[in-house]
Computed example of a mutant assay.
Amino acid sequence: MDAQKIIPSRTALFLLNLQVMYAKIDPSLDALMVHTGTVIKAAQRQGITIVHCRVAFTESEAADIPDTNPNFSHVKYDPSRAAMYSIDSSAAAFHPAVAPEDGDIVIRKNRSGPFFNAPQDVHAILQERGIDTLLVGGVSTGGAVVATVV
């Protein structure tokens, strides 16, 4: 049996939480962001679509976070965290080393994973582009990456 091959036109490099706030929390992540920028360029040269996904909340989304959500319930009650995760916050922006470019897919999530409870239908966005293979990476591999893969 032939090994499955990655078909660039049907593949996306799906990057999660590569945001300014995480590099501020852990400055060592700056190097990760810069390295990921080189990975993005290599994927683009191969014709692979880049998907940038960030976590950020509107005021109403923050108010709707369940108290039982261990990852984000603090956003609901802590004004400094709410400001950091605000959809318009510079902290919630993509890190400059991995900033989206024309033609990239840009999505936002308001939970750990982007496929459920997201403000947009991520599956439909990928289907529209004919993408059926994801290469997943990002910050918070035990949270965002796992939630996306699962």
Results as ranks from 00 to 15, higher is better:
residue 35 H to K: 15
residue 36 T to F: 03
residue 119 P to L: 06
residue 133 T to H: 05
residue 23 A to F: 10
residue 90 S to R: 09
residue 36 T to I: 15
residue 59 E to I: 06
residue 72 F to Y: 13
residue 62 A to R: 00
residue 96 P to I: 00
residue 75 V to K: 13
residue 101 E to Q: 15
residue 1 M to W: 12
residue 147 A to V: 07
residue 69 N to S: 10
residue 65 I to D: 02
residue 25 I to G: 15
residue 26 D to C: 11
residue 112 S to E: 14
residue 132 D to V: 14
residue 109 K to D: 04
residue 13 L to N: 04
residue 47 G to A: 00
residue 112 S to N: 12
residue 9 S to Y: 02
residue 120 Q to A: 04
residue 127 Q to H: 09
residue 131 I to S: 01
residue 26 D to W: 09
residue 49 T to G: 01
residue 80 S to D: 15
residue 82 A to I: 01
residue 142 G to F: 10
residue 14 F to T: 02
residue 107 I to M: 08
residue 77 Y to C: 05
residue 118 A to W: 05
residue 76 K to T: 12
residue 5 K to H: 10
residue 125 I to Y: 07
residue 1 M to P: 13
residue 56 A to M: 10
residue 120 Q to S: 14
residue 24 K to N: 07
residue 91 A to Y: 14
residue 124 A to W: 09
residue 111 R to Y: 06
residue 115 F to V: 00
residue 37 G to Q: 12
residue 60 S to L: 08
residue 4 Q to I: 14
residue 22 Y to C: 08
residue 17 N to K: 12
residue 23 A to V: 11
residue 97 A to Y: 07
residue 39 V to A: 05
residue 141 T to F: 01
residue 16 L to I: 13
residue 39 V to H: 04
residue 82 A to H: 12
residue 49 T to N: 02
residue 66 P to D: 01
residue 14 F to R: 10
residue 50 I to A: 14
residue 38 T to S: 07
residue 31 A to P: 08
residue 71 N to T: 14
residue 1 M to E: 05
residue 104 D to Y: 02
residue 46 Q to P: 04
residue 59 E to N: 05
residue 39 V to W: 03
residue 36 T to D: 00
residue 94 F to E: 01
residue 27 P to N: 09
residue 47 G to Q: 10
residue 108 R to D: 05
residue 2 D to W: 11
residue 45 R to L: 13
residue 117 N to Y: 05
residue 21 M to Q: 07
residue 22 Y to S: 11
residue 84 M to L: 14
residue 92 A to L: 06
residue 91 A to T: 01
residue 149 V to W: 00
residue 93 A to H: 02
residue 65 I to S: 09
residue 51 V to S: 04
residue 56 A to C: 12
residue 23 A to G: 00
residue 2 D to L: 08
residue 1 M to S: 14
residue 22 Y to G: 05
residue 132 D to E: 05
residue 101 E to D: 10
residue 65 I to A: 10
residue 69 N to E: 14
residue 24 K to G: 01
residue 25 I to M: 08
residue 17 N to C: 15
residue 82 A to G: 08
residue 80 S to F: 14
residue 20 V to K: 06
residue 81 R to I: 09
residue 114 P to E: 02
residue 76 K to Q: 03
residue 56 A to P: 06
residue 144 A to P: 06
residue 145 V to Q: 00
residue 34 V to I: 14
residue 78 D to G: 12
residue 116 F to N: 12
residue 92 A to V: 02
residue 57 F to K: 00
residue 120 Q to Y: 09
residue 46 Q to W: 03
residue 68 T to M: 00
residue 132 D to Y: 10
residue 135 L to M: 12
residue 130 G to S: 00
residue 78 D to W: 10
residue 109 K to I: 03
residue 29 L to V: 11
residue 129 R to N: 04
residue 130 G to R: 07
residue 134 L to A: 12
residue 88 D to V: 03
residue 17 N to R: 09
residue 105 I to V: 11
residue 43 A to N: 09
residue 83 A to C: 15
residue 10 R to C: 11
residue 130 G to D: 05
residue 148 T to A: 15
residue 118 A to Y: 00
residue 145 V to L: 07
residue 69 N to T: 08
residue 10 R to K: 15
residue 30 D to V: 10
residue 20 V to C: 02
residue 113 G to Q: 05
residue 67 D to S: 01
residue 16 L to D: 00
residue 75 V to P: 08
residue 81 R to K: 13
residue 61 E to V: 00
residue 53 C to D: 07
residue 2 D to Y: 05
residue 36 T to A: 09
residue 118 A to N: 01
residue 88 D to C: 04
residue 72 F to I: 07
residue 149 V to H: 14
residue 111 R to T: 13
residue 61 E to Y: 06
residue 5 K to S: 13
residue 75 V to H: 13
residue 7 I to H: 13
